[in-house]
Design a protein around this nucleic acid. Structure first.
Lengths: 143, 143
DNA sequence: TTTGCTATTGATAATAGTTATCTTCACAAT
DNA sequence: ATTGTGAAGATAACTATTATCAATAGCAAA
């Protein structure tokens, strides 16, 4: 199991309640929240926490390779406590962001590398469409 | 052949020298420029053109489906006069943005759609790595 | 446990890309 | 030619993010 506290200590970062709170919240959700979404959710429990602290915590986690930053075409970033690169899909109707199973992408990187001559180090794959839920609502909702 | 002037007229937009200039510049380059890169390149020929006009022109082109907006993880957008969705690759060393041939992606969308249940309408695929040029420089440059 | 060093927090100012506002201008239709 | 309207240019406003800085708190050493 992954232990934030150990990693922070190992790398010479201090263990603070704020960092633990931000990380735990991100770790425990699948909704790929943005910084201000995290901030708002933390407000009730940590009413003194600053938005800047949320940003700075995320910055540290990025450096440590504990989270990844997503850009799904909004004017802000979203964050994922699963730092392993994997594709995401966004519902153009409700704005939800979900993970996509990435088994099917294994060959892809090799192919891209061969075609382009690049030495690949990373990729960001975003898909957009209408989620099953919104497809239903669309059919039943509008006559 | 594609005719900007006709499309603008058809959709009720005015044909202006500024719009033509922005579009022609974007159409004629492969470097996927940002708004300010376009602005700077236009300065010598159109010294009175405003940055706001560049943005507004791009906005119109997006609406008309003539260009697409890219986000390769910078704090600004880049633009591509090829509005057909296709993957891009960015060199993490020199910052260059290039097109990737998308033949290999045809099955992918079907697979993603099946796995997720989404009705897909779009996708943004970004790859990151070191371009052939920077790989060479790296080897020969640093001893 | 106490002390002292220093990273971190919280509050807020600054930054930068983009968008909105508003006045003036250009062009098309009458 | 005149008039109406969309567009341009200049600049203010907006917003997510980053930088600044004094006060605080984690942590190592005594």
């Amino acid at each position: 199991m992954f232990d934030l506290i150990r990693v922070l200590k190992e790398k010479g970062y201090k263990v603070t309640p704020q960092r633990i709170a931000v990380y735990d919240l991100l770790k425990g959700t699948k909704e790929h929240p943005s910084a201000d979404m995290l901030y708002n959710k933390l407000q009730p429990l940590y009413p003194t926490m600053s938005l800047a602290t949320v940003y700075k915590s995320l910055e540290v986690f990025k450096e440590l390779g504990l989270v990844q930053e997503l850009n799904v075409g909004e004017d802000k970033f979203r964050y994922d406590a699963n730092a392993r690169q994997h594709p995401h899909i966004t519902c153009s109707c409700c704005g939800k962001v979900e993970d996509v199973d990435d088994e099917m992408f294994f060959d892809l990187l090799e192919q891209v590398s061969q075609k382009t001559g690049y030495e690949l180090v990373n990729q960001k794959l975003y898909f957009f469409g209408y989620c099953p839920q919104c497809q239903k609502n669309k059919v039943s909702g509008v006559s």
